[in-house]
Write a protein that binds this DNA or RNA. Structure first.
Length: 887
RNA sequence: GGGAGUAUAGCUCAGCCGGGAGAGCGUCCGCCUCACACGCGGGAGGUCACGGGUUCGAGCCCCGUUGCGCCCACCA
């Protein structure tokens, strides 16, 4: 018995139960199997603090489309999911929660704090993955991983020790980026630059032994507390004499040298720079060259420390104001200029980052990055779209060592231990038992944790079991595609690439498919602070996951940002409903009938036409998808289903379905409908998994011919079939379509009431053309609303006042004397005449161009000649018709 | 200061190898035609940002200009 299909497709309820079925049947699960080719995608692990947003929805829809496509193509498809501990994001979150309870993390202590973190993970870590399920994501949940699970933890320690032993990880005093709010170091990649309106303060220091002053400009007057020199350019004649002299640092009353260094730009400001080696990267370098003292004047929270004298304890910005005021009072403030400059801010909390010198852990990049550069250069790894390579190389070419230590508690603790007796440092995967130097047995582990990206860099192989040499690792690595946003290319993509080459000796993935941002309808970035974010779950609830997925994929090219709009969601929802109803129609007509494979001669030309069209769509869509042109493929499927299958084929086939006298013809139509529908559903399935599955399973129940799978998601992807190529039928049906469109247009232009039936005569000198029309008479009559159609080789007997529809192959006459205003018919034909004139002009110009004839390809010339002949014929008809109407 | 984008219908965007400008939404006209009004049929609407160039032929390729955002960058 057939299932009753509702008139309107309602995704609610259906989606969840289908997803449950897929899970129960283990369709998402993949095991290494040498007899099949693997296809692997590792999911960019969402943060455990995260809530599903449109970016995730887009990212995961793309991955699901690819994995479902490949699975249907017969690959052993693994989509490896998991979540990221997101060290800083999570820690900040938990600190906030504690703060609300009046507790600080220090009060709680490290151990208790970590317990809270794990509690949080337990409670909220599954939230985002359950939201991903709502999207229809077909990932292998049995293999779900977490960046801080036991295996990933092992991988992290393994990599750390390996790199340390190779000298690629080191500890050193360097200039780092410090976030005074998060109170941790951050990497260069985490620093954003923001243009800020500020001032340039011109200040002067007294030159010792003279009455003169040296004037300079600074954007950070408060750092003067840590000044240890003043610098000028060695070539600068204005200051040559002063080099080697000393100036007096006011407030601190410190004598400092005037040094000469190329770094100083003579053109900028006064050509003099104050030097604060502890708080400016350039000054730090300059300080090293001139052996200057490094005086840190700042505490970790951004307040001035004891080195700042009386300003100790004051916030950095309060200190700035106070110091400027004091300098002014001392008569040392020359002037204040408005000045806009770039300020580094922390990407998480947007606090102005403080450059500081601290002892931290770093990954030496120069050597590690080489294979990563090579791999992309030689095409082992392909970036899509390929212009991302520029961005990639820009980063690799200017790479600096990666600061990996964080003053956070939630994360992988650095596996470095210090002997509490002799202070020997041991880097080891597990805590050492005995100090190799002094034999002592007590150690202190480094308190810092690793940058969260250190563990995600290992994700493509750590999730497959590395450092164990598992079957999964051997079988699924390297993975095939990585799908991600272009915004994390530096954080993640590059780091996975060099980690893969370093640890596995092989690239982590063969292709990186980048997508853009999902913006709001106005083009603004969706963000929590703007409150303009749209919750994908709400959209799913209202329109269905299929609609959301389809909306996100259509109408945008790889790497480009896109806008979210409900209009587009509605359009996608309407499309799902369209397929639903087309299927409903087909099922309705199949009811109670057994559809058999018809003989080749039983198929009507129109059947062969749609099969031929379908065949081409199958190969086009497959090709587009192989090339990651997901949006283009989606548009082609949409167009085929709606505009060819529904608007034309179903309408053309209706008269045959309603006429049960001709069982053979009816069967051929039903067979074709079913075949085309199933192929369409399969092509669409990666995009709209739910509605296609629901329909597919219903068809199966209806016919139970045994040739069908339990699920469309494990059914075979359609393939191009030479035997379904029918160019002649395509041509003849397109000709009839042209005539139908012409008649409809004419009727509409002449205001013929839609219900008014009118006979038609098809006139053509070509008997083959007439034959085609005759074969299609049943539907031709229905589509042009003619009770009767007659055929003739000439137009004798056609009344002068009939409507005439001129097409390239035939003219259709419709006597409508009583209904039409002749002058309107004349106007209509004159319009057509004008159009044809234009075409003839263009075509003639082309064909009379010697150079065109000489240089254009033959096929193009032949094509153009054919068009010209057709236009000439049409023009002749139109002219004749006009003269007889006017006469 | 570098780099990579983008500019196409009223709006949002597609446009593969260079060969007669497309979609969705909106708009106008007409339809509750026995799958679907989340629909059907028919229209209107474009100097493909601007200026050069290559080519038989340019939305597409080359050079330049302008507008718009984006990324990167240690000139105080």
């Amino acid at each position: 018995m057939s299932k009753e299909l509702a008139k309107t497709y309602d995704p609610k309820g259906i989606e969840d139960s289908l997803y449950k079925k897929w899970i129960e049947k283990k369709y998402f699960h993949a095991e290494p199997d040498k007899s099949k080719k693997p296809f692997t995608i590792v999911m960019p692990p969402p943060n455990i603090t995260g809530q599903l947003h449109m970016g995730h929805a887009l990212d995961n829809t793309m991955q699901d489309i690819l994995i479902r496509f490949k699975r249907m193509q017969g690959y052993n498809a693994l989509w490896q999911p998991g979540t990221d501990h997101a060290s800083i994001a999570t820690e900040v979150r938990i600190i906030d929660t504690l703060k609300a309870q009046g507790i600080s993390k220090e009060e709680l202590g490290r151990e208790k704090f970590l317990e809270k973190c794990w509690e949080w993970k337990k409670e909220y870590g599954g939230r985002i993955t359950s939201q991903l399920r709502k999207l229809g994501s077909s990932c292998d949940w049995d293999r779900e991983r977490f960046t801080m699970d036991e295996g990933c933890n092992k991988a992290v320690n393994e990599v750390f020790v390996r790199l340390y032993d190779k000298g690629l990880i080191y500890k050193g005093h360097k200039m780092i980026n410090w976030c005074p709010v998060c109170r941790t170091t951050i990497s260069d990649a985490e620093v954003l630059h923001e243009s800020q309106a500020s001032h340039l303060w011109h200040i002067k220091y007294k030159i010792i032994g003279t009455d003169d002053y040296l004037t300079f400009a600074t954007t950070r007057p408060e750092t003067m507390l840590g000044d240890t020199a003043v610098a000028v350019n060695p070539e600068d004649d204005r200051y040559k004499d002063l080099v080697g002299k000393k100036v007096m640092l006011p407030i601190m009353n410190r004598e400092m040298p005037v040094v000469a260094d190329d770094y100083v730009d003579m053109e900028f400001g006064t050509g003099v720079v104050k030097i604060t080696p502890a708080h400016d990267p350039n000054d730090f370098e300059l300080g090293k060259r001139h052996d200057l003292e490094v005086i840190n004047i700042m505490n970790d929270d951004g307040t001035i420390n004891e080195n700042g004298g009386k300003y100790a304890g004051m916030d950095r910005y309060e200190a700035r104001d106070a110091i400027v005021k004091e300098l002014d009072e001392m008569g040392l403030l020359v002037k204040i200029e408005d000045y806009t400059h770039e300020v580094g801010i922390h990407d998480r909390c947007h606090t102005t980052v403080e450059p500081l010198v601290k002892e931290q852990w770093f990954v030496r990049m120069d050597e590690l990055i080489r294979p990563a550069v090579e791999g992309v250069k030689n095409g082992e790894i392909r970036l899509v779209p390929d212009n991302m390579e520029k961005t990639y190389f820009n980063w690799t070419d200017n790479i600096r060592d990666w600061c990996i230590s964080r003053q956070l508690w939630w994360g992988h603790r650095i596996p470095a231990y210090t002997c509490s007796k002799c202070k020997e440092m041991i880097v080891s995967k597990t805590a050492p038992k005995v100090c190799p130097k002094c034999g002592h047995t007590e150690f202190e582990q480094d308190p810092d944790t690793l940058d969260t990206w250190f563990s995600s860099a290992l994700w493509p192989f750590s999730t497959l079991g590395w450092p164990e040499n598992t079957d999964e690792l051997k079988y699924f690595y390297p993975t095939d595609v990585l799908v991600t946003g272009y915004d994390i290319i530096f954080f993640w993509v590059i780091r996975m690439i060099f980690s893969g080459y370093e640890q596995m000796g092989k690239e982590p993935f063969r292709t990186v498919l980048f997508h853009g941002l999902v913006r709001d309808a106005k083009g603004q970035k969706m963000s929590k602070s703007l409150g303009n974010g749209i919750d994908p779950l709400e959209v799913i609830d209202k329109y269905g996951a299929d609609a959301l997925r389809f909306m996100l994929i259509t109408g945008n090219a790889p790497g480009n940002d896109m806008r979210f709009s409900y209009e587009k969601v509605e359009a996608a929802r309407n499309f799902a409903n369209k397929i639903w109803n087309a299927s409903r129609f087909i099922l309705l007509n199949m009811e109670g009938k057994t559809v058999k494979r018809p003989g080749d001669d039983e198929l009507a030309p129109v059947d062969r036409w749609i099969l031929s069209k379908m065949n081409r769509i199958v190969s086009d869509v497959t090709e587009n998808m192989e090339k990651y042109e997901l949006g283009v493929a989606a548009a082609k499927i949409y167009d085929f289903i709606w505009n060819e299958l529904c608007d034309w084929y179903i309408e053309m086939v209706k008269p045959r379905l309603y006429n049960s006298d001709d069982a053979v013809s009816q069967n051929a139509a039903l067979y074709t409908l079913k075949k085309v529908l199933i192929a369409s559903l399969k092509l669409l399935h990666p995009y709209m998994p739910f509605v296609t599955e629901e329909i597919y399973c219903t068809i199966k129940e209806e016919t139970s011919d045994g040739g069908m799978d339990d699920s469309i998601m494990i059914s075979k992807w359609p393939e191009y079939d030479k035997g379904l190529d029918f160019p002649r039928d395509e041509k003849s049906i397109e000709m009839i379509k042209e005539a139908v469109k012409g008649v409809r247009n004419a009727r509409s232009a002449m205001n013929v009431p839609p219900k008014k039936k009118a006979e038609a005569t098809v006139v053509s000198a070509d008997n083959e053309v007439l034959e085609s029309f005759k074969t299609g008479e049943l539907y031709f009559k229905a589509l042009i609303n003619a009770p009767e159609v007659t055929y003739s080789n000439d137009k004798s007997g056609i009344p002068d006042d009939a409507l005439s529809v001129v097409t390239g192959n035939a003219t259709v006459y419709i006597p409508l004397a009583e209904l039409t205003d002749l002058s309107e018919e004349i106007a209509r034909l004159e319009k057509e005449e004008k159009r044809l004139q234009g075409e003839l002009k263009r075509s003639n110009a082309m064909l009379s161009n010697e150079k065109f004839l000489a240089k254009a390809p033959e096929s193009k010339i032949a094509e153009e000649k054919e068009k010209l002949a057709s236009y000439e014929k049409m023009m002749e008809e139109v002219k004749e018709r006009l003269s007889s109407l006017k006469g």
